[in-house]
């Protein structure tokens, strides 16, 4: 089948099918009247909600920790203070990612070219990986925030060994994941094990799509 036959086959048959395709006029009118959530609009409330909760958490945490630093640093439990500070600091970083996502959502223009729009939309989805990297980085502080000098002094070698084993393991795993959770490792088995499930399908597809977009961009740059 040559090129012209191929096109003719597509056009004639699709035109015939398109003729039989009827758009309900009432629905066309309804679309101009109702306030329906669109593709990206549906993402905004969730992001705004996450931002508000995050700001609240970081705000309250900063006030509590700040007052300890300023007023009672010498008497404070340093394990709680430093673990809490790291946790609040990392949450603040996650908030910045959400803020970036929200700004990107407002910037996406569905009438822009396919490559530009899909690049933005895929990148937007992939920044979700950043949130996960940051969440994993918080792992070690959840093993230390409850420590205090009294219980540390009571610990024997066995208890020390167990606690340190968990804290060091969590720290190594957290840093390893922080470094390795990235787009380039999407095909690794451990990556697919972590990001397995229905809710991650859009993320995986975004990665595939970004790869396609990059192929087109690369060739654009080289031509």
């Amino acid at each position: 089948m040559n090129e012209l036959e191929l096109k003719k086959l597509w056009q004639t048959t699709n035109d015939k099918l398109a003729e039989n395709f009827v758009i309900n006029k009432k629905n066309t009118e309804d679309i101009t009247r109702i306030k329906v959530q669109n593709l990206l609009g549906s993402m905004k409330p969730l992001k705004i909600f996450a931002l508000l909760i995050g700001f609240l958490w970081v705000g309250i945490g900063s006030i509590i920790l700040g007052s300890i630093y300023l007023n009672s640093f010498s008497e404070a439990n340093k394990f709680f203070l430093f673990s809490g500070s790291i946790q609040v600091g990392l949450t603040a970083m996650a908030i910045f990612v959400y803020l970036y996502q929200l700004i990107t959502i407002y910037q996406v223009d569905i009438t822009d070219s396919i490559i530009n729009t899909q690049k933005k939309l895929s990148s937007l989805k992939i920044t979700t990986l950043w949130v996960n990297r940051i969440l994993f980085l918080q792992l070690p502080v959840w093993t230390t925030f409850w420590w205090n000098e009294t219980i540390i002094n009571d610990w024997g070698i066995l208890q020390w060994s167990i606690r340190l084993f968990f804290t060091i393991s969590f720290t190594v795993v957290a840093f390893w994941l922080f470094i390795n959770i990235k787009y380039e490792n999407r095909n690794k088995k451990w990556f697919q094990l972590i990001f397995n499930g229905k809710e991650w399908i859009p993320l995986m597809k975004s990665m595939e799509l970004l790869e396609q977009v990059d192929e087109y961009k690369d060739e654009n740059a080289s031509t």
């Binding site: 048959t13 309900n24 109702i34």
Partner: peptide
């Protein structure tokens, strides 16, 4: 909010095309 059938697609499945 859009309860009515949006589109009606009629296909002639037996068409060679």
């Amino acid at each position: 909010e859009l309860n009515e059938q949006l589109v009606e697609i009629s296909l002639d499945d037996k068409s060679e095309n």
